[in-house]
Design a protein around this nucleic acid. Structure first.
Length: 414
RNA sequence: CGGGGUGUGGCCUAAUGGUUAAGGCGCGUGGUUUGGGACCACGAGAUUGCCGGUUCGAAUCCGGCCACCCCGACCA
């Protein structure tokens, strides 16, 4: 991508109406724009990160046999009345059609997927199945806050699995738990598997918590066992496995996994026939990852005074090439030439690269903006190329650049 | 929903109740620049959140509403 063509805008000043680090940086760097409290637009840079996260999730879920679909976000009232949640679900956005039909904007999709799965399942031979989507969710939060961490509209991956019995749900849930750890790892985060309450619809759940001071949850973490307990269920501050003292940490919940049992199958009468021709209720689990929240959490963990430091797999681009603008026209042409050569070379190797080809911008401004945007690898082509035929290579997290030969570049970004 | 705070060009800010609301960033034009958000000149851009009140006169005082931020409550 040529930076001269990229549609974005960065800001020197922090927005006055944002306190959280993730919101300040994502707005300043041109990834998102605020529309209202808890409601954001995602700009070209921002959607690239979202897509990266989504595709990591897709890859890992597909590996364990999950299949993607897309469910409606307009939920007729009757579906939610069947589970009693039309009244009970306190953050439900409700809306009316011109003819008076009532709907909710989807805050979660059990009410839609259980009736769907009912049509797909007849026999034990049809089980188990696991379906997921990556879609927008709406929750009428009384207090949206902290940039992307608690929104009224957000993107979520929600996975639902359907099984013959409870043991099968538990077994699958463990597989999802392991997969979640992998997904978060690929996003650069060490999420902690955390035991938590299941809310209204499950006796317990597993949360995936990212320790950071920006978090609104409090967990008690065992360094030895690498697991934690949510504050809401903790009894004594000792690890249940190894009895060691637990560490209190603030954290962000980026995912959760629930065993739903038969609760929704009962509400929507989702049955299957077993080998002995007995009609039985389907057992189910549900598993969520807050995609946009995850993006916010990544920024909370990876930033410095200059800007964002995107982990490699979720960065909007992998390499940022900066063409230094120098006085001499002849030298400048050389720089542009070699820059374009490297650019095309990297593209041919399927490496995503942003090249700052703007001619009317000072090198200083390019560098500052580059740090703010936070692409993991940066190459500057300037005086050092003219003098020594070398390019400057620097990781975003490094303090100093090193001079390298152009031919060696690929060794450094692998 | 309770408490606290804040609303001024796109962004960040300034302005004892007193001319035509000031500056910086950004933007446009021209020029000088170009290794860490450079400089000069000219220019475009505002019903000071909304409604009402007090006053000769309101960005400024008063009332109501709205929005945003923070703390709390809530959070499948």
């Amino acid at each position: 991508m040529l930076q001269s063509k990229l549609i974005y805008k960065t800001y020197k000043e922090e927005p006055a109406d944002e306190e959280s680090r993730n919101a300040k940086l994502l707005i300043r760097a041109g990834f998102i724009e605020k529309v209202s409290a808890g409601i954001y637009n995602f700009l070209p840079l921002g959607i690239r990160v979202i897509k990266k996260i989504e595709n990591i999730i897709r890859e890992e879920l597909n590996k364990i046999g999950c299949q993607e679909l897309l469910l409606t976000n307009l939920h007729p009232k009757e579906y939610w009345e069947k589970t009693g949640r039309w009244e009970k679900f306190d953050v439900l956005f409700k809306t009316k059609s011109q003819t008076g039909s009532e709907y909710s904007l989807a805050p979660t999709h059990e009410e839609i997927i259980f009736p769907l799965v009912k049509k797909l399942i007849n026999s034990y031979k049809d089980l188990p199945i696991a379906l997921y989507q990556i879609h927008t969710k709406y929750r009428d939060e009384l207090r949206a806050k902290s940039g992307l961490l608690r929104n009224r509209e957000f993107i979520m991956k929600d996975l639902y699995s359907f099984h013959k019995n409870n043991e099968e749900v538990e077994r699958f849930k463990k597989i999802v738990d392991r997969t979640y750890i992998k997904i978060f790892k690929r996003c650069g985060l060490n999420a902690v598997e955390t035991f938590a309450s299941g809310g209204t619809f499950s006796p317990y759940s597993t949360e995936f918590q990212v320790p950071t001071n920006a978090g609104e949850d409090i967990i008690y973490y065992c360094k030895n066992c690498k697991v934690a307990w949510n504050k809401e269920i903790i009894e004594e501050k000792k690890c249940k496995n190894c009895k060691r003292e637990l560490e209190e940490l603030k954290s962000i919940e980026v995912g959760n996994t629930f065993n739903l049992g038969t609760r929704f199958s009962e509400a929507f009468e989702v049955y299957f026939l077993d080998k002995d021709n007995n009609r039985k209720l389907v057992y189910a689990g549900c598993y969520g990852i807050g995609v946009t929240r995850l993006m916010g959490a990544i920024v909370e963990v990876y930033n410095d005074e200059k800007g964002i430091l995107w982990p490699e797999e979720v960065a909007p681009f992998k390499v940022h090439i900066i063409l230094a603008n120098i006085k001499d026209d002849k030298k400048n042409r050389k720089i542009v030439e070699i820059g374009e050569k490297i650019y095309k070379n990297l593209l041919n190797k399927n490496i995503e690269v942003l090249i700052d080809d703007r001619e009317d911008i000072s090198t200083g401004e390019k560098l500052v903006e580059s740090d703010l945007i936070g692409i993991p690898y940066r190459i500057v082509i300037g005086e050092n190329f003219v003098k020594y035929k070398k390019i400057d290579f620097k990781k975003r997290k490094d303090k100093k650049y090193k001079l390298i030969n152009i031919g060696d570049l690929l060794k450094f970004i692998k």
